[in-house]
Design a protein around this nucleic acid. Sequence first.
DNA 1: AAGAATGTTATGTA
DNA 2: CTACATAACATTCT
Length: 263
Amino acid sequence: MPEGHTIHRAAAAHRALLAGREVAVSSPQGRFADGAAVLDGQVLDAVEAHGKHLFYRWGTGDLLHVHLGLFGKFRQHVADPPEPRPTTRLRMVVPEGAVDLTGPTACSLMDECGLERLLARLGPDPLRADADPERFVARVLRSRAPIGTLLMDQSVIAGVGNVYRAESLFVRGIHPSREGRSLSRTEALELWDTVRDMLRDGVKRGRIITTDAKELGIPRSRMRRADRTYVYRQDACRRCGGTVERWVVAGRNAFACPACQSP
DNA sequence: AAGAATGTTATGTA
DNA sequence: CTACATAACATTCT
């Protein structure tokens, strides 16, 4: 489920609900027992998102690191939360509401060093004000790896996943197998801008919709799941109708329209 | 209702 | 040394 937009959206929501408050923290399944015990009843000072990583800074000085991985999910409840699911790993509660976490790849306490080590191998995150696009451009232009691989490499650019990879390259007319160094500086910069805009839109909507209802000739209200992307999980290109290529890169499905994306 | 899925890391092989 | 492939781990949704 989660690419960078999901994480930043959660950060904003959790900040609004929990930041500055004393939070009851628990681990219903006991799989986060130590951390929950330390954090329970503490004040949450800040919530920060870097790419697909989330950090909760507590009054104790502890840092809680969360990474959703492929299956992780947050659920928010108003007021009294329901019984936790069997898979609920972490629950954070204030009188106004609660946040549950299931299926994360990471949910653990970390110190400042851990945070720095992590950030050191993270590329610029287009959703962050402090992101430097030039770092992305430089990495791309000097790499012979395919741009489709580079976009998914979190040390090149943080926050992009399989959907945004497919869709941003489609929109820019760039085939995923082109070598990074074959892009022009302008292409790389425009790709950055496209990714940033798509991520922002994802944060706003809470879902990924990269297509344009007008272009598809469908009323916005009638857009269904299959109308939200041009090539991602499509058999036919939603722009030209041509057959979408599908192959596996690093264990993930890649998608491209050979007609709309030049190799 | 089996299977695919918006991730990452560690380890094995070429 | 790179770089690719494979497995492991997490759970939900169709």
